[in-house]
């Protein structure tokens, strides 16, 4: 199968450290590499340092030390080159209140150097492919959050750079159109773009990425394919217990591998052999009035994420 991949246009971050004024160490020796055609997930809780890395890549922040490069180009020394080689969808909503949807996409494409015919055709194709063609001439102000987000995505990728950075691209988007968006992300990688997906939605990332890194406190604590990161959880189950609001966290039996509480949800992991114990224990909590319900299921990437970060991914829908 012919794949339009150019050679040696990988994105490299090498030992990137960013210490803010005031001493906060937001990135602490980050090293990673994204190949052309690869969708790479950057996962981690809020404040882990993901956005700091992104802002250094696109030249809004300067690293304290370390290098960033795409192909033969040094992005730290030449932020103006970085702006040409990278396309960026920020997590915040785009400033498109006064634009018609198609106009916002086309203007971005022209600013990024696309010619009239290419940009127009690509805008139409993207709006169709994302299922937002009926809002072509609607003003940004009138768009729902999800449609606005999709217009933003189209703006970011209408004339894509070698590295496409997507920060929480599916926020506010309905499940059906999320799937359409992921298809376009895959189309970008097929044309040789390196895609950096920044997210804290682990379940969604599991399906979308080729490789991923888990970032915590400015460091990469694990890197690999989704299945390699799940390897340690093979043979394990996840037991999730919904506690009664206000109740204390019950003491964990010794056969539970981890227990993380977020709000009223207690997420734990246990060996398949201990499934019986788990059900008895959880049912006991329900009977004692400590818990409302529980669910036992196969372990996911989320369990690896919880094990690595001590956080539950913030968004449960996927």
């Amino acid at each position: 199968m012919p794949v339009a991949v150019t050679t040696d246009w990988s994105f490299r971050a090498d030992d990137v450290t960013k210490v803010y004024k005031g001493g906060v160490r937001a990135n602490d020796g980050l090293t990673l590499r994204i190949e052309p055609g690869e969708v790479y997930g950057l996962l981690g809780p809020n404040g882990a340092g993901k956005s700091t890395l992104v802002k250094q890549v696109i030249g809004l922040l300067a690293p304290t030390s370390g290098t960033l490069a795409i192909g033969p180009h040094d992005l730290v020394a030449h932020p103006e080159v970085a702006r040409q080689l990278c396309s960026y969808l920020p997590q915040a909503q785009m400033p498109i209140d006064a634009f018609r949807a198609s106009e916002a996409i086309e203007l971005t494409g022209r600013i990024r150097g696309g010619d009239r015919a290419t940009v127009r055709a690509r805008t139409d194709a993207l709006m169709d492919a994302l299922g937002i063609e009926e809002w072509r001439t609607a003003m940004g102000l009138k768009l729902s959050g999800g449609v606005r987000r999709l217009v933003g995505f189209a703006m970011a990728v209408v004339v894509p750079g070698r590295l496409v950075i997507l920060d929480e691209p599916t926020n506010d988007i309905d499940p059906l159109r999320r799937r359409l968006l992921w298809r376009q992300v895959r189309a970008l990688s097929e044309q040789g773009c390196a895609v950096m997906l920044v997210t804290h939605n682990v379940l969604e990332a599991e399906k979308a990425v080729d490789r991923l890194a888990v970032v915590l406190d400015g460091r990469i604590v694990a890197e690999g394919t989704p299945s390699s990161l799940k390897a340690e959880d093979r043979g394990r189950l996840r037991l999730q217990v919904m506690l009664v609001p206000g109740s204390d966290t019950p003491e964990s039996p010794p056969w539970l591998h981890s227990a993380v509480r977020v709000g009223n949800s207690l997420v734990t992991a246990l060996d398949e052999a201990d499934a019986g114990h788990g059900i008895t224990w959880a049912q006991g909590l329900v009977d004692a009035g400590t818990a409302e319900e529980y669910a036992l299921g196969a372990s996911t990437l989320e369990d690896a994420y919880i094990r690595l970060t001590g956080h539950v991914s913030d968004d449960d829908e996927a």
């Binding site: 339009a4 192909g71 080689l85 022209r110």
Partner: peptide, 25 residues
């Protein structure tokens, strides 16, 4: 550099823009 013939016009480029044309655009 390898690129297939069926790459769409919007596919990412390796050419950097510069000079007066870049400024004017």
């Amino acid at each position: 550099m390898i690129a297939t013939l069926d790459a769409p016009a919007w596919a990412p480029t390796t050419t950097l823009r510069s000079g007066a044309g870049y400024w004017w655009t």
